[in-house]
Design a binder for these strands. Structure first.
Lengths: 156, 156
DNA sequence: GAGTTATAGTTGCGTCGTCAACTATCTGTT
DNA sequence: AACAGATAGTTGACGACGCAACTATAACTC
């Protein structure tokens, strides 16, 4: 058993500010979307994924992988969003177990109307304080983190 | 109405990787704590705050501010943790409305036993891929973000 | 010092998300 | 072809958290 390596001063400074800033950021983005467009941040992201997909549709499984939530979470989210008229389920011909989630015109319209306000909020809260160099460094860092965590998950 | 400034390539790269990495990171840290020490990430953070406080106690309000959750969330968390024996409520002499949340010896012991595994997980998932320069840049960036968001919240 | 306003903490209600179990279907092995 | 094991999606039970409403106390104003 190695002795514990506690965080250095700078590591601790990063860790605390990262936790605080991230939570506040997500809270504020969610509130902005709900207030201005009646849609949660989580649902907004699902609409984005669908809008970028071929034929504006994805399998439930693909959605859960891409959105970092569980399959059951996606089931419930799509059920909600189907009730709102933003998406619809469609039978999957090639795999009878499966189901497509398709973006509807209404969902696309909702996304289009929510987009500008959301991007403005992202700019106002996050990018307003970042230099171009910061953005490059952090994009590399978080890409590496994502890949690292994903790799680590498979093995252990 | 300004035309919407969508994200540049690098901004988008940062935004996506930040969202994905952050979610996976929090999920993995929570699972590690629950699995190895029977405590959630959220509760762990409350124990940390209490352990660092004078006399190992904080007002409910201070806890909710410091942990970026609502007062009602803190009420419920402290109730749970009181049942687990990690904290106890104490009457506040100087403000009859108020209540202290105090860390118990058992809570301190739980924190001490969970700490090393948690720090190791934080190192393994986050700091493993960051250079010292990355850490400095990102600590400055997130500190600025936190301050910026906090300022922005007050004004409306 | 009486009355208004603000603040501390709790609670009811609703929503969201996870886990574990389940059904239906697909895939690989013999 | 038949069966064992994986995979897709759903559901029930449960826990966590936010909002809004409520009580009690404090702080401010006249």
């Amino acid at each position: 058993m190695e002795p514990t390596r506690w965080l250095t001063h700078d590591e601790h400074r990063l860790w605390r500010s990262f936790l605080d800033a991230t939570r506040m950021l997500f809270q504020d983005l969610d509130k902005q979307l709900v207030r201005d467009s009646g849609i949660s941040f989580a649902d907004y992201e699902i609409l984005v994924l669908l809008s970028e997909a071929e034929d504006r549709r994805l399998r439930m499984r693909e959605l859960s992988d891409a959105s970092t939530t569980t399959r059951s979470g996606i089931t419930r989210a799509i059920t909600r969003m189907e009730a709102a008229g933003w998406v619809q389920r469609a039978e999957c011909e090639s795999d009878k177990r499966g189901a497509w989630a398709e973006l509807t015109d209404k969902g696309a319209a909702t996304l289009a109307s929510a987009g500008p306000g959301h991007v403005a909020a992202v700019r106002a809260t996050m990018f307003a304080v970042l230099s171009p160099d910061d953005i490059t460094v952090m994009a590399d860092a978080f890409t590496a983190m994502r890949d690292h965590i994903q790799l680590h998950r498979r093995s252990g």
